[in-house]
Simulated assay, not measured.
Amino acid sequence: MNSREYYRPISKEVLSDDWGLLTKHEFELLRRNGEWQRQTRETYDRGNGATCLLHNPQTDHVLLTRQFRLPVFLNGGLHSMIETPAGLLDGARADERMRKELIEETGFEVDTLTHLFDVYMSPGSVTEYLAFFKGTYSASDQTGDGGGTFEEGEDIEVMQVALTEAMRMIENGAICDGKTIILLQHLFINTLLKRA
């Protein structure tokens, strides 16, 4: 079944076009029972992105960042979020953009990244998907301090955390970012499978 067989657009209205594009859509959707239902939804489009977890196999540490996130602060009062480095693609290939983000945010430059999968993080309202990557790093890969760019309002703390401690931080709520939890659990599960 192609999209025209179950989706009929009626109208769309741009509500905001600032940092991202917020659009109100009115449409008809074919339900499973064969009836058409009129619906209204809003979508937020800011482009697609990429995220990456770097792991140091010698020390069993992972490279994470901590920064202020306004939506999280407004919703739950958290001063900062611990996350994997990430950024918008802005027309670049996902692996190229991710390498630049790693240098910008963490100060580490790595050659090889492995693409794992693409994930829609909030499909009910946000059009963005994230390309997930993994890679390895060592102390010799550090070429700068990281911290992000002042022009983008970034003030990023770089953290090297033992993988076992990062897993505990998920358990106790210190890490509550979806993309970060997915990547940490992916690494932890694969580490256990290799040891088994």
Score class of each variant (00 low, 15 high):
Met121Asn: 06
Val14Trp: 09
Glu42Met: 09
Thr59Met: 05
Ser122Arg: 09
Gly49Asp: 02
Lys12Trp: 08
Phe117His: 05
Pro9Leu: 11
Asp145Ala: 14
Glu35Ile: 03
Gly178His: 12
Ser16Gln: 14
Asn2Gly: 04
Tyr44Ala: 07
Thr23Pro: 04
Ile170Gln: 01
Leu63Val: 03
Asn172Val: 07
Thr112Ser: 14
Leu15Thr: 03
Leu21Ser: 10
Phe108Arg: 01
Asn75Ile: 08
Gly124Val: 03
Met167Phe: 09
Thr164Phe: 12
Lys24Val: 02
Glu35Pro: 00
Arg66Tyr: 03
Arg69Pro: 00
Ile182His: 08
Leu22Arg: 05
Gly146Trp: 03
Tyr6Phe: 15
Arg69Ser: 15
Leu88Met: 09
Asn172Ser: 11
Thr136Tyr: 10
Ile189Gln: 10
Tyr137Pro: 00
Leu183Asp: 01
Gly135Gln: 08
Val110Met: 12
Glu101Gly: 00
Thr180Cys: 06
Phe132Leu: 13
Thr191His: 12
Arg195Tyr: 14
Ser16Ile: 03
Asn2Thr: 10
Val161Asp: 02
Ala92Pro: 00
Gly87Tyr: 02
Leu192Ala: 10
Gly144Pro: 05
Arg99Asn: 02
Ala162Asn: 07
Ser138Trp: 03
His186Gly: 02
Gln37Cys: 08
Tyr6Cys: 05
Leu29Ser: 07
Ser125Pro: 00
Asp17Val: 00
Thr114Ser: 13
Asn56Met: 04
Glu152Asn: 10
Ala131Trp: 12
Arg66Gly: 08
Ile103Ala: 02
Thr149Phe: 12
Glu42Cys: 13
Glu42His: 03
Asp111Ser: 10
Asp177Cys: 10
Leu163Gly: 05
Glu151Phe: 08
Leu130Val: 05
Phe117Asp: 10
Gly148Ser: 09
Ala92His: 13
Lys134Cys: 11
Ser140Thr: 13
Gly49His: 01
Thr51Glu: 11
Gln58Leu: 11
Gly49Asn: 06
His55Glu: 09
Leu130His: 12
Thr112Val: 15
Thr51Phe: 03
Thr23Gly: 07
Asp155Glu: 13
Cys176Ile: 07
Ala196Thr: 05
Lys194Ser: 15
Val119Asp: 06
Leu29Ala: 09
Leu70Cys: 07
Asn2Ala: 05
Phe68Tyr: 15
Arg8Tyr: 12
Leu30Gly: 04
Asp118Thr: 11
Gly148Tyr: 06
Val110Gln: 08
Leu70Trp: 12
Gly91Pro: 02
Glu152Val: 00
Thr59Ala: 04
Val161Trp: 05
Asn48Leu: 13
Leu22Thr: 07
Ile175Lys: 03
Thr40Val: 15
Ile156Phe: 06
Arg66Cys: 15
His61Arg: 13
Leu193Tyr: 08
Ala139Met: 04
Pro57Ala: 11
Gln142Cys: 11
Pro71Phe: 10
Gly34Ser: 08
Ile189Met: 07
Met81Pro: 00
Leu70Met: 12
Met159Asn: 03
Leu64Ala: 04
Met121Lys: 00
Thr84Met: 06
Glu26Tyr: 04
Lys12Phe: 14
Met167Gly: 01
Tyr120Trp: 10
Ser140Leu: 14
Arg41Asn: 13
Glu165Ser: 12
Leu192Lys: 06
Glu171Met: 07
Glu154Asp: 04
Glu105Met: 05
Arg38Val: 15
